[in-house]
Design a protein around this nucleic acid. Sequence first.
DNA 1: CTGAAAGCGCTTACAG
DNA 2: CTGAAAGCGCTTACAG
Lengths: 343, 343
Amino acid sequence: MTRDRPPQDRATLPRRPHRVTAADVAKAAGVSRSAVSRAFTPGAYLDDDKRQRVLETAMDLGYRPNALAASLQGAATDLVGVVIGELGNPYDSEWVAALVLALNASGKWPIFLGGPASGLEASVTSILRYPLDALIVRGGSLGETLIDNCSKLNIPVIFSGRVISHPAIDCVACRNQDGMAMAVQLLLEGGRRTFGYIGGPSALSSETERLQGVQEKLAEADLKLAAQVTSDYSFSGGRGAMQQLLAQADLDAVVCANDAMALGAMSFARSDGHLSVPEDLAVVGFDDIAMASWPEFGLTTVRNPLDKTVAEILRLLEDRLATPHRPGEVVMIEPELIKRQSH
Amino acid sequence: MTRDRPPQDRATLPRRPHRVTAADVAKAAGVSRSAVSRAFTPGAYLDDDKRQRVLETAMDLGYRPNALAASLQGAATDLVGVVIGELGNPYDSEWVAALVLALNASGKWPIFLGGPASGLEASVTSILRYPLDALIVRGGSLGETLIDNCSKLNIPVIFSGRVISHPAIDCVACRNQDGMAMAVQLLLEGGRRTFGYIGGPSALSSETERLQGVQEKLAEADLKLAAQVTSDYSFSGGRGAMQQLLAQADLDAVVCANDAMALGAMSFARSDGHLSVPEDLAVVGFDDIAMASWPEFGLTTVRNPLDKTVAEILRLLEDRLATPHRPGEVVMIEPELIKRQSH
DNA sequence: CTGAAAGCGCTTACAG
DNA sequence: CTGAAAGCGCTTACAG
């Protein structure tokens, strides 16, 4: 058994270096190519001794079946595209970490696409050259075109964080409006009356829903927002937004569309605004990221349950793969009020 | 031009739904398969009108060349495996976000593998069935076996955060020891004399180097660590570690192996330990994550430059792909002392 | 400029 | 149980 083959020294180097092939193993083990293939196919008929021999030779040579060649035969690729946005805030990162783990655990290999919407469009176009088992899309603004392209290629799409009204698309999203209603309710019960709001990019449906949740709950109490600012879901964005808010009105509560901005808002209110939270000002967020529970902040917030979301994404994926033509399913995740010290 | 083909209603459903193929386009456009292929190959000879016609038909049908089939011809797959660890701390997340963007920007598609070392081993085995252009490995404990497997498959490996002494492996890592020396120097200049240390998992080479940097610099001043605790690189781990440290000695400085633990340590020292930072106790970290600069913390730390690291990973990747047989390159990144308020 | 044919690495009926 | 052959979707010499 020769481990080292002579280096390929043709005039033109091959574009990709040679990879050990079933034929190589067959020759080395003195069997047919078919036998090699069967050795790696669990149910296949093959003499036990022969299988052993093939497997050992393969091990020596470092051979493993080329998954891409195999997929040409019709097997699933186990490749799943995952479109994330800019990854600008901690909740995004937590989502990514949880999803990678869950996907890996069920033998799926996620290909990540990130960046601002402009570049994403091009990235998605490129990635669709691969026969993906599915495409998972996180929130964001990618829409119609993507669905259209994927349906032509028979690549199922699963949306997370956004409800799509399409008969054949699966999605999972948080009941944003209910979540915000709970938060505002808590503040009202605490006697707060003058509300400010820090929102995220207004193009996002989650933003629209969260704002609406706030406004409707306030309307029930015959109140409306005393001041309102749009920001970018980041900590520093939250700080800047709070500065603007404080210049506009004398508030006793600020509701933020996510935790990162809420932390920034709280930070600015305390350090630059010389306000104490919650005595002078209540601050609440949305998501329940790890930092919300840090003692420095003790942020009261609305949990956007990550584990449930990821678990549902995986269930939808498996169901979709098992039954490609099933109707699209919409899964709504129930948010949960987390009371800490900031309200 | 017929857009809708009759649904495939065989008794047995195909394992993967049909994907539009070059042959489909050829038939619809009335040209040969070769012509379709050429239409998508930039330099290829093809009548302009014909190319137009093919491209339009392809657009209508939603066709794009199957990248996997193409790769059988020897083209690069543009698929890059990325082995991350547990993604437990913010620096990991920042690294992932930056790498995704950089890779996407240069037309590479990262497949992420995460989780604890045990599961990772199996994941890597699976992912090697794909003809990856390269494998990028973040820190961690995956070692010899991986390098061996990859070299047999001719898949180049690039390590980040760890120096590998192997003639054909590229790696990029921070000068951890120098970084820690700078931090300790600063504390010594500030008059600190009684040092505690909070380390990460001791199996990691970066941990060994950072600890050594601290010890050697202290030795230069005829000092040694008054107390030392090992933790897990997390915020809560840092809190717990600080609790232990305070029980062991009366410190005036705590050096932490990363920022997340430093923030936790600072948090515990202030809230539970009733110490003020930096008056009673100096705290420094390593990495310079986003939260280190938040006003609540103002953490003095050693920047582990992310942009440079990622840029070097990409350069190494491109050089390796262009010159597969070049000798392995080791790139050392210079850390940078970031002075804030905690020292 | 163009089509028919070979071949990439694999799996899977097919015929022993 | 097993090997030779066909075929997955593509690209690229080859021969017009």
